[in-house]
Simulated assay, not measured.
Amino acid sequence: MTKRWEAALAEASSPSWTRRARAGRDLASFAEVPEAAEALLGLLLDAEDTAVTRQTAEALTRAGTVAAVRLIALAVAEADDNRADWLQTGVHDALMDSGGGLDVAAVCGELARHPEEAVRRGAADLSVWTVGNGL
Rank of each mutant, 00 (worst) to 15 (best):
E116R: 14
S98I: 01
A23G: 06
A105L: 11
P115A: 07
R83N: 07
E6S: 09
S14M: 04
R54W: 09
L44K: 02
T18P: 13
A12D: 02
T50R: 15
R113M: 07
A12T: 02
E58W: 12
R19P: 00
D46E: 03
L87A: 03
P34M: 06
P34N: 06
V104E: 03
A57M: 11
A7K: 14
V119C: 12
E48D: 13
R70A: 06
A118R: 15
D85V: 07
D46N: 02
G64W: 06
A63W: 07
L27A: 08
A8E: 01
L95G: 04
W17A: 00
A21P: 10
L102I: 07
A123G: 08
L111G: 03
N133Y: 03
T50Q: 13
G134A: 04
D103I: 11
A12M: 04
A112S: 15
L111D: 04
D46P: 00
E117L: 11
A47H: 09
D26Y: 07
R121V: 11
L45C: 03
A94H: 03
P15A: 12
D46A: 00
T53R: 00
A8S: 05
E32L: 13
A106I: 01
D81R: 15
G109P: 01
D81Q: 15
G122I: 02
A79K: 03
E32W: 15
V128I: 10
A51R: 13
V107R: 08
T89F: 09
T61D: 07
R62M: 09
A79Q: 05
E117K: 12
R20E: 00
A36K: 07
W17K: 01
T61P: 06
A118E: 15
A21N: 10
A57C: 12
T50N: 14
G122R: 04
R25P: 02
W86L: 08
R113E: 13
G99A: 05
V76Q: 00
G42L: 00
H92A: 15
E78C: 01
E117C: 05
W17V: 00
T50A: 14
R54N: 09
A68G: 03
A57R: 10
S29Q: 14
A7Y: 09
V104R: 02
L126T: 05
S29Y: 09
V76M: 02
A105H: 13
T130Y: 04
L87P: 03
K3A: 10
A75T: 01
A118W: 12
L126G: 06
W5S: 02
P34R: 08
N133V: 04
L87Q: 02
W86Y: 15
N82S: 12
S14T: 01
E110S: 09
V91N: 09
D125W: 12
A57Q: 11
A8Q: 03
T56Q: 08
T56L: 08
V119G: 12
E32N: 14
A39M: 06
A21H: 09
A36D: 06
T50G: 14
A75I: 03
E11V: 00
K3F: 08
L40K: 06
H92Y: 11
R4N: 10
D103G: 14
L135E: 14
V66R: 15
T53W: 00
S16Q: 14
A39P: 05
A36W: 09
V104M: 02
L41H: 10
E35N: 12
A51F: 08
G90H: 08
G132Q: 09
A47D: 10
